[in-house]
Design a binder for these strands. Structure first.
Lengths: 190, 190
DNA sequence: GTCTATAAAGAGATAGAC
DNA sequence: GTCTATCTCTTTATAGAC
């Protein structure tokens, strides 16, 4: 007899939730399948039933973020000018990163995950499209640096312990304001 | 007969150099002593002769950065106002991070290293003093977020592959300019 | 100061019982 | 779908020869 639909896939979600917490505490390389299993009170074999490898888990954890980025890029594609595409994408990224506050910081800057994403066409392509929209056509060096600093800054800031007391709404308001000012002053072509 | 002074400690430096390259490619957790030994063409035991543990290597790699931060903070301590202390420290950090371009990015945001540094009084204290100078007395939330974004942004940007073609001098010029503008526009108390 | 050898623990992953 | 048990490889780290 099949399990009710409402129950199906719950174990998978629990693995992802536990993995996310551990990844963000210890990094992906610093997290073992044993640690994930222990946190769930199950054995490694039970985890392997849900995912074929540790890489699979890491990719499944980040997937929702890339899905949202892709959605944002589809919206940006409908906009008429380079400038509006860029500013809408930057604002959208801020909201998106805060929505996935725990996830995005885990993966931005983690070399292990970087290599994993580079080796996964689906994700690499999204990253390249995002960079294309943020940089615009023929970006000069100052623009490149400003965009890089913005991206790293937002990702890094949302999980900075110094900031952790701020709730999502408050953080988003401040970050959107900073983003607007930053864009006006620091990106030459705006 | 003792080894000539000019030779002493060279093996140690070679270990640190190899470790730095591997750490920046694979993260600290993703790098094993075997990988370090292999890159040097020696055995693990030879590495263990120079350092008692992997943590020791990681701490020795970051030490020069913290030495320079401490030097910068001593300079900042001599300045009269909160604002000059902050702007001089921010500019100094930009130069310092570029000077240690390969090192600093490895460690900023790496959870393994974060825990290691938190557990080492010498380094934790420097980090706290730095945060104190950058934040100033009684920082509001917007200042906290701006400073956090600045720190993460500079660290993340210097090793962004998108930026890697820029040489140190060019990158420093752009980053110092961005820092100045950012400080004027984004930090409320300035 | 660098080696071989090895211990002891933990990693990722699989097979097969229930 | 979850377990026990196990395999194989790698890890950190030490002991002792040279």
């Amino acid at each position: 007899m099949a399990k009710p639909v409402a129950m199906r896939g719950f174990a998978r979600e629990r693995v992802l939730e536990a993995a996310l917490e551990l990844f963000s505490d210890h990094g992906v390389s610093g997290t073992s399948l044993q640690m994930i299993a222990d946190r769930l009170g199950v054995t490694k074999a039970a985890v392997y039933y849900q995912f074929h490898s540790k890489d699979d888990i890491a990719l499944a954890v980040v997937k929702p973020v890339f899905d949202d980025i892709e959605h944002l890029l589809r919206i940006a594609d409908t906009l008429p000018t380079t400038e509006t595409r860029r500013s809408v994408t930057m604002g959208g990224m801020v909201e998106l990163i805060i929505r996935h506050r725990r996830i995005s910081s885990v993966f931005y800057g983690d070399p292990t995950v970087h290599h994993l994403l580079e080796g996964t066409d689906e994700f690499r392509v999204v990253g390249e499209r995002l960079a294309g929209v943020l940089l615009g056509p023929d970006p000069d060096n100052a623009t490149r640096v400003a965009i890089s600093m913005f991206s790293a800054g937002v990702h890094g800031c949302v999980t900075d312990p110094m900031i952790s007391e701020l709730d999502d709404a408050e953080l988003q308001e401040i970050l959107l304001d900073l983003t607007k000012k930053f864009l006006e002053v620091c990106v030459p072509s705006c």
